[in-house]
Amino acid sequence: MRKIFIDCPEQIPCNPCVHICPVGAITIEGSITNLPKGNKELCTGCGLCVAACPGQACFLVDTEFKEGFASVDFPYEFLPLPTVGMTVKARDNEGQTLTDGTVEAVIQRESSHQTAIIRISVPTKYAYLVRGIKPITDFVKAL
């Protein structure tokens, strides 16, 4: 099951994640600058928070995606979008490439206001380290 994973380390005034979650799985107690908490029991893995978070700090992780592989859903706002089946460089928060990943889904919803959600599979040990991919830069070269 895909479940919410939040990497929101700093106390900044922000709470769209709380309002977008249809099942109340994300809460911020007290002040708006407090850090959000994700409740994996309640989370249905819909991914609305992944696209809504202005800080791109919400992810979905499925540690049992496939034998030996986890899936990670993350927001992506570059063009061109990757395509399903593509091999991509999976990166951590510092931009270090951890491993190759395979694009499993590219999700675009109108309610996400142009933020796509990309799902990639990676070896399970990287499940909670992957935060994105090296952007596909083909179109930059074409310029």
Partner: peptide, 30 residues
Amino acid sequence: QAGANVIKIIEAAPKISGYGVHAAKIRRAG
């Protein structure tokens, strides 16, 4: 996003001065 090549950001202070989440967005992009 516009397709530019940003080689580096340089910062005189000993640490990144903006929000960590903004920094993470671009560090993830390399």
